[in-house]
């Protein structure tokens, strides 16, 4: 897939994922099913972040070190947020 279509696909997916995150809040799912909703949102943020990094920042075909650094940052931050959320449950 060319960079051109990859970026367009990323944009559509980003809109859909944002809509889903909004819906989780708006429908009350974020409240009534808070734990699965929270982890789903973090998963969506991971997907959205990777789309931005790969198809907007164009790091999909960048040197491995840079790809690893930026995607690693995203994965680290989201995992730590998940950990903090989990400790808040107890």
């Amino acid at each position: 897939m060319s960079y051109y279509t990859a970026a367009n696909r990323a944009w559509i997916l980003l809109l859909l994922a944002t809509g889903l995150t909004w819906w989780l809040g708006e429908s009350g799912m974020a409240e009534s099913a808070s734990v699965p909703a929270a982890f789903l949102m973090l998963g969506l943020a991971l997907v959205k972040g990777v789309l931005v990094i790969y198809d907007f920042m164009e790091l999909r075909h960048a040197p491995r070190m840079w790809k690893l650094l930026i995607v690693g940052w995203l994965a680290f931050v989201l995992s730590m947020i998940a950990l903090a959320y989990w400790t808040g449950l107890r």
Partner: peptide, 9 residues
């Protein structure tokens, strides 16, 4: 990251 973290979760 900021949007779900601060507004929704």
């Amino acid at each position: 990251i900021l949007f779900p973290l601060v507004y929704v979760m």
